[in-house]
């Protein structure tokens, strides 16, 4: 790729991942040394109406307009990176799928709800092909840079299929379970260098679950710690509700 063009886009999200990218600091200057950022709403006002090499997409797909728009972006880009939990696994937005769509619309838009389109929340790869995934809410900037390097050199990147505990132990943290707290680390994908736990927080499972989580045992453990089963399910569903779409509807692109 000769000075590849990179464009950033957002769908249903808080734009926090864009903020993470904007805050990368020095490494961002190095990226700008080797690539042109042609569109990035949070940091620049220019728009780009031609094709680009890498589309970096934040946010989940939540209405028909979004489906059309993401298809358009895909058709203009050689590669597509989905970044952030909303884009990669549906994330927090997936909680909408706990309810009937009309119920949700009424709650949000009031009596005129019929004018507001909505669909079940989907991660980007349910609608178009995604070449690279950067999981996390927000993304872990070093992983974003790793993925960007892989994309720029045309090498695949595999989101680690092992638990956050792996990296948490590398960092020699005291286990949250020792502190009497519940933590999604054991069933959540690594790659964040156990960012939250290093800073005293528990893991909320924002990176999605490992490919074959031992959910039964995880629930048993939490029950042993006398934690209400609903709380556990809520914990799991907070970021991972869209998983059900894959189980039931096989809608994976």
């Amino acid at each position: 790729m000769k000075r590849p063009k990179i464009a950033f886009f957002d769908f249903a999200c808080c734009e926090g991942c864009q903020l993470q990218v904007a805050n990368i600091g020095e490494a961002l200057l190095d990226i700008l040394d080797i690539a042109d950022v042609v569109e990035f709403r949070e940091v620049m006002s220019e728009k780009w109406d031609q094709s680009f090499d890498i589309a970096v997409v934040e946010g989940s797909i939540t209405d028909h307009h979004a489906i059309e728009r993401i298809k358009m972006i895909r058709s203009r880009s050689k590669l597509l990176i989905a970044y952030g939990s909303c884009a990669t696994i549906g994330g927090i937005n997936g909680m909408k799928n706990n309810f009937e769509l009309d119920e949700i619309r009424k709650e949000v838009y009031g009596k005129d709800y019929k004018y507001f389109d909505t669909i079940k929340t989907m991660p980007v790869h349910h609608v178009v092909k995604v070449d690279y995934f950067v999981n996390g809410c927000p993304i872990y900037p070093p992983e974003f840079i790793t993925v960007l390097k892989a994309a720029l050199s045309g090498i695949p990147y595999d989101v680690p299929d092992k638990s956050v505990c792996i990296e948490c132990k590398f960092n020699e943290n005291i286990c949250m379970y020792e502190k009497g707290l519940t933590c999604m680390g054991p069933i959540t994908r690594a790659g964040c260098n156990s960012w939250c736990i290093n800073n005293g927080n528990i893991c909320y499972g924002c990176r999605g679950m490992v490919s074959n989580p031992n959910e039964k045992s995880a629930k048993d453990i939490l029950e042993k710690y006398k934690i209400d089963l609903n709380l556990i399910l809520n914990r799991i569903n907070m970021y991972n509700k869209c998983r059900e779409l894959e189980d039931n509807e096989q809608k994976r692109y």
């Binding site: 092992k162 132990k169 286990c175 069933i187």
Partner: peptide, 26 residues
């Protein structure tokens, strides 16, 4: 019962299995 979290091997004083990977500069 195992969660496959990998804690047991990481803390073990004699587990030495490893992965080899490349880390690119920018």
């Amino acid at each position: 019962r195992c969660l496959s979290c990998g804690n047991c091997t990481n803390v073990c004083p004699t587990c030495y299995c490893f992965d080899v990977m490349d880390v690119q500069n920018l």
